[in-house]
Design a protein around this nucleic acid. Structure first.
Length: 312
DNA sequence: CGTTGGCCCTGATCGC
DNA sequence: TGCGATCAGGGCCAAC
């Protein structure tokens, strides 16, 4: 069975497209599977769980998982017997990998789930996470009317309570583009910070934020309310474009159900125009890409295409 | 409430 | 060879 080896250095934070590829890879194995046993190797990986470690294990053991859902960068597995779900966030370095034996996940294995699949086969899911920014939890599912930010449109499918503040992502069929447009245009904060704020729009991380801003030719610090309506629309289209392109590439390298069921193999660096391309030429104008420090992270821009406070 | 700054966390890598 | 500094950044929270 092919397992992707860990190669140091090429690790990147999974954003929406990578998480979706993980979701697709898990789906055939996990849907209808029964959890027989749970092993916690690193209790800090349960930080999001509201309760002790034993409680997490008790609630999950014996559960049948009905499907794999995603919003933004969160994944969850509703449990058939209860109104709860196994909630997972990969953080910066988390991976969910499918295996058949116990020992193939390496020293960064944090949580292990032993499953019996719908086809009555044994499977093991390993949660591997170097930096322990990712986490797992058992969380109650709530419907729209019970949510913190109840939504004005869309389905009333239940969602884990602790992530009910997470906005719909741009690939969601009920994503409300007009609502996002209106919200962005009345905020004075720099546009990149808003793109990264999962309460406003989810799924975007540092890499695809830079990519989308480059496509729309917007400087990352431009106050959102100073960007014209048309330009904000362009930006939202750019987000959808970079997500869509990454998903296509993730899909093409997706030969078997085991391939790409981890947080890194699906990273599609060939398609990146600015991120990680410091001092390399902009593919539009030839200017050298610059790396700035911003919000304790890197921002890559083309200094010519993305001028400060360009609004139209 | 909107905005902003900073903390968490580990292993790879770099400079001296 | 050793060792401290640096870097990666999503989510969340305190402070104003």
């Amino acid at each position: 069975m092919p397992l992707i080896p860990c190669e140091a250095g090429e690790e990147k934070m999974p954003e929406l497209p990578e998480v979706e590829v993980v979701r697709l890879g898990l789906e055939p194995v996990v849907v209808g599977a029964r959890v027989n046993q749970v092993r916690i190797l690193e209790p800090r990986s349960l930080r999001r769980h509201l309760g002790p470690e034993e409680d997490f294990v008790d609630r999950l053991c014996g559960a049948r998982l009905s499907c794999v859902l995603r919003r933004g960068k969160f994944l969850w597995f509703p449990i058939e017997e209860t109104k709860e779900a196994l909630l997972v966030h990969l953080g910066m370095s988390g991976q969910l990998r499918i295996g058949e034996s116990e020992s193939e996940f390496g020293p960064l294995l944090r949580v292990q789930l032993f499953l019996t699949t719908q086809e009555n086969k044994e499977a093991v899911v390993g949660f591997v996470d170097q930096r322990i920014f990712g986490s797992m939890a058992i969380d109650g599912l709530v419907t729209n009317s019970e949510r913190v930010n109840s939504e004005t449109r869309g389905s009333d499918h239940p969602i884990p309570g602790t992530i009910s503040h997470i906005a719909r992502d741009p690939m969601d069929e009920y994503f409300d583009e007009r609502k996002l447009l209106l919200e962005l245009r009345q905020r004075t904060t720099g546009i990149k910070r808003l793109l990264l704020d999962q309460r406003i729009v989810s799924g975007i991380g540092n890499i695809y934020a830079d990519e989308a801003l480059w496509r729309a030719k917007i400087h990352y610090e431009t106050p959102a309310n100073l960007i014209s309506r048309g330009k904000v629309k362009e930006l939202i289209s750019a987000v959808k474009f970079v997500f869509g392109r990454a998903l296509e590439q993730g899909g093409t390298s997706f030969d078997s159900q085991y391939l790409n069921v981890n947080g890194k193999a699906g990273y599609f660096s060939r398609s990146l125009e600015v991120y990680g391309r410091e001092r390399k030429p902009c593919s539009r104008c030839g200017s050298l890409i610059r790396r700035d420090r911003f919000m304790n992270r890197s921002s890559y821009i083309c200094p010519k295409c993305q001028r400060r406070r360009r609004t139209r």
